[in-house]
Nucleic acid binder design. Sequence first.
DNA 1: CGTTCGCATGGGG
DNA 2: CCCCCATGCGAAC
Length: 887
Amino acid sequence: MAASTSTGGAVAAPSAAASKCYNAECKELRPDRPRKGWRLRAGDFAELCDRCGSIYEEGKFCETFHPNASGWRCCESCGKRVHCGCIVSSHAFALLDPGGIECISCARKNFNLNTGAAWPSVIYHTPLSDRLKEHPAKGWNQLAGSGPVPWRQAPTLFNTSVTRPELQQRASTPFEVDPIKVGDRRIASLDGKRIEDYSERFMNGIIKLGAADKFENGSAGHSIEERLNQCIINPQQSASIKEEPSNSPFGLTVPYSSGNELNGHGGPHFRPAPPPTLAKHFYGSMFVENNSSGDGQTRNGRPRTDARGRNNLLPRYWPRITDQELQQISGDSNSVITPLFEKMLSASDAGKIGRLVLPKKCAEAYFPAISQPEGLPLKVQDAKGSEWVFQFRFWPNNNSRMYVLEGVTPCIQSMQLQAGDIVTFSRLEPEGKLIMGFRKASTAPPSDQDNEAAKTTNGPSVPDSELADPGSWSKVDKSGYIAKEALGIKSTAPKKRKTNVLALKSKRLRGDNEELIELKITWEEAQGLLRPPPDHQPTIVVIEGFEFEEYEDAPVLGKPTISMANGPGKFQWVQCEDCSKWRKIPFDALLPARWTCAANKWDSERSSCMSPQELTAEELEDMLNTSTSAVSKKKALKQESDSAEALEALANLAILGEGEPVPSSLSSQATTKHPRHKLGCTCIVCIQPPSGKGPKHKPTCTCNVCVTVKRRFRTLMMKREKKQTEKEAEESSSKKQQPTPQQLPEKPREDELPTQCNNSNNNDASSSAVGGSVVSSPSQKKEEKEGCSDEDPRKAKPSDSPFKGQFDLNIQPDKEEEVSPRTDPSSMMKLLQDATDKYIKQRLGPCLDQDTEEKPINGVLAKTDRNEAGDDTSTALQASQSNSAEK
DNA sequence: CGTTCGCATGGGG
DNA sequence: CCCCCATGCGAAC
């Protein structure tokens, strides 16, 4: 294993242990090349002898050297013993609110499940993977809330600091550990400092991660680490130049078939090592830029881009594959997956023409160099292990080339992909095999089933008018969960989603959207938990007489509570973090993430953990059960309704959370005009400049954008009030009110919208930032959607809509179209607008046409809800036609 | 006449 | 203004 001497940590080995293993229990002399252990308080790393290093890396340090020491506890979730308290294992567990601890694996898992927040669901919870999540290369993990470091700076694809030999060496490290065990045992945690450290290192290109580097917290494992490292480090450039095979299929190896696993749903699972690959040729270089052929650049005049080109890949093509996906793809423990790029399928790509246009730079950077338009056959293995042979070729185009993969139809169909979905290209090392994965833009609601979606849907005829499918952006599944990344491999439910035929045009927007958030929380849930950031004073902004608090920082997730709003006395139950007792608090109380009895300002008698709990065990159980069932119900409802709601939620979140430091990429792309909107279009989408750009709007600003926003906000507020009133009335009479005539068929669900509204009023209305990840993505999506007059076909299910009676879209769509100078309605305004727009479009569809252009589309889309592939296509087509006609 | 092929066109960045 | 690329479109099959 290569020693990582280039890292600061390695260099700064504790002098005290200069000659001895740092492990006090060990008397061994440290070898010349000590193995790096845990991170010391000073920031250095313990240097261990080989034996201890190995033990440490296997995550057995604590159990080996101080098994009887105090501090051993069991994970509340999996029961695994975890040593708590020593520096070696300090990052291996998480403290639970109710007490107890969880191993990092479970903690992360649960965190994801419960909050949908940023803990990426990665199979291997190794220190490295954790770091990776935080590290610029988050793209791999689909991390939400990416750090400030631009993804592209990550060594993942472009860094060449590590040589292939090293990689190989590492790949075959004797420390290889069974992945499953590793997954089980490995634990790690996010350590701000460490993360930073690594990020920095990565950024600096000094990524020689020595083994020690990777296992600082003592719970690391090898194979995973190795793989991850390689994935991360694996530089395309490291490969040697490959010969352009002239006629044999490019790529080798026979796919192993383990489709089942690949299609597994949900949870991370380990895929058994696939049968040995048949051909072990080393194609590491196969996709490397190759100009050696000399003619590579001729034919069409323009030289192929050189290796530098890969550094210029547009964000939209950056692979966002998760390590989990990678793992699944690679399967073989000896293989390393190197994500190359991804592309959202256009209508043309997904159509039956069978030609997938490849981004030029990607094609030139990662695929074999071709000098003839005819190109070469290219073998590609899909996520299921099936192998396909496509013709990789190009067309002379102007003075350039247009690269395409021909014959992709069967593959696309087998994966049931359609326009808007994303195909990812990765390379499996050392085989050099090209792997094609995919990600559904969204998962369709069950109701939308159409099994042949893939084949019927988009054809070249599918007009771009297809709006962006909200779902495609938000990755919302019917259950209301967002970002169910279903890399073809384990896709959570390869259901067909016809819904997104759209998104075609928006793909760019979406593509630029770096961080798709992995939100596994219903939007209402998230909404309900949003809190203003602690210690931040809001700026009060008054819009139309309504005061909004604007926060500069992202909101935080507050503590979940159980609301008891059934009876006359509405209140909610919240559990103390310290004593776990449940306390009754006002119905409208918003709690911080951490709440204890001491904070119970509503009940002085129970403002201490010493105070007995009001609820009896029985009552508590009952309450919890009720709560659970209620949640289930909600979810069930949600599932029935389409993901549009989730989107809305996101949009709302975006509104609430504006102001948060959204990744620049996001903000920049945020407001691109919808492709359908051409010059002169004055719709609300088009009149807005990209967020973050343009002058900031003052509260008193009366520009069109602001006016629109205000109007919408006002309406929203009014609606909210109305809603509340209705709700109360409803409750008292326990009679469900029918939507008023003016209410749209689809209104926000009471439990959802109201929450949002409340939040708006209280804190975020104007713009507090939502948790970074949460917001950024949603906002983008929303915007994109918006631009697209996106109609989420799925939204159609009026009856299912949880939003009933919520929103008053009493807005005058027309006005929204007002032409305006491209001022930048500051983010919040914009977000607000977007959200509103989105909502309107989605919910109202044809009823309210805020944008004449979109009107027809809305109607059409609304009709296509059921995802009939055929229908979609046709409707889409119609829409597009009408659309174009208008133009 | 429906497809496929290959190039052209043009919007958008 | 240039490049990229989604799509159009005519010719060939």
